[in-house]
Amino acid sequence: MSQFLKRFLLFILVLIVTDQIIGFCLRQLYFSQHKGQFAQTTYAIDSANQDILIFGSSRAVRHYSTSILSNTYGKSCYNVGRDGQQIPYYVAVQDVIFGRKKPSMVILDINTWEFSINPSRYEKLSILLPYCHKHPELVKYVELDNPFERYKLLSAIYPYNSSLFIAANNKIFENKIPSDDKGYDPIIRKMNQAGITYTKKIIAQAKIDNEKKQPKIDSLSYSLYRQFLQKCVDAHIATYVVISPTIVPETPNERKDKLLSITKEFPAVTFLDFSSSPNYNDHFEKFADIFHLNKEGSEEFTKELLVKIGKLPQ
């Protein structure tokens, strides 16, 4: 057994050295990206210090024109939204950014489906792993998925798990990736007839699924939402919670009621709901796909939002 233990320890040593070398290379590749979602996240977490910040998922990234907001207010603006992410991510990023500089205005794009039970919401926090060494405050968020994440971070490769192809692609084809506008990344596309048919099919199916089974509520997401608003209110930041336009009107549901009741706990926070706006519901020409407005739709929406806020005339 002693022979095995000696060899095993030596093997572990070689493994650790290899892990550190490969991890170093992956880190170099990851942080050398200038374009794409990883680069945007790196900027949001490491550098964002604008006056106006937009938080949210891919819908935030696609729906809020930073130029329009910036020009209207005469202030700097950045969209720190991220594809596929939900409330735990916004809170984590808020924690890091507010530790650096507090903005004067925050727009939080939210959706009721972010409050139903969905384990992938926490699994997706793994995109924060590359930043945990520099920002240890993020560890508590990645541990929402798995309490052992802290220990997995001992590996230098692990934080960059599943990122190699994307990072290499973003690096090699950097010139082909369109630049974002301060985090705003509109979709320049209109749905064709096939897309509309496909979308209608999905909507019909989703309606059937929803009728069959009402999604269960994720209480942790609500408490994180409350935490997000509390931090904004404590820092006296003008805060807007927005449900941006959807292709079909949202039916009343328990998750939305709870979202509204929590928001009402913070009178300084403005809640704006565009999910039943006739300007967008069934206006397929303003959407790029089932979830996202296209460029024209998002610019129209950003202006309409500013009208509602009172910054632009009717």
């Binding site: 093997f11 070689v14 493994l15 290899t18 892990d19 490969i22 992956l26 384990p119 699994e123 793994s126 998925d145 798995n146 997995k152 590996s155 490769i157 692990y158 960059y160 798990n161 599943s162 190699l164």
Partner: peptide, 19 residues
């Protein structure tokens, strides 16, 4: 021998799905 074993461990860490 060790190189191949370590490569497989590295492949799991780089490409594996952990959830």
């Amino acid at each position: 021998r060790w190189g191949s074993i370590i490569s497989m461990i590295a492949a799991i860490l780089i490409f594996g799905v952990f959830n």
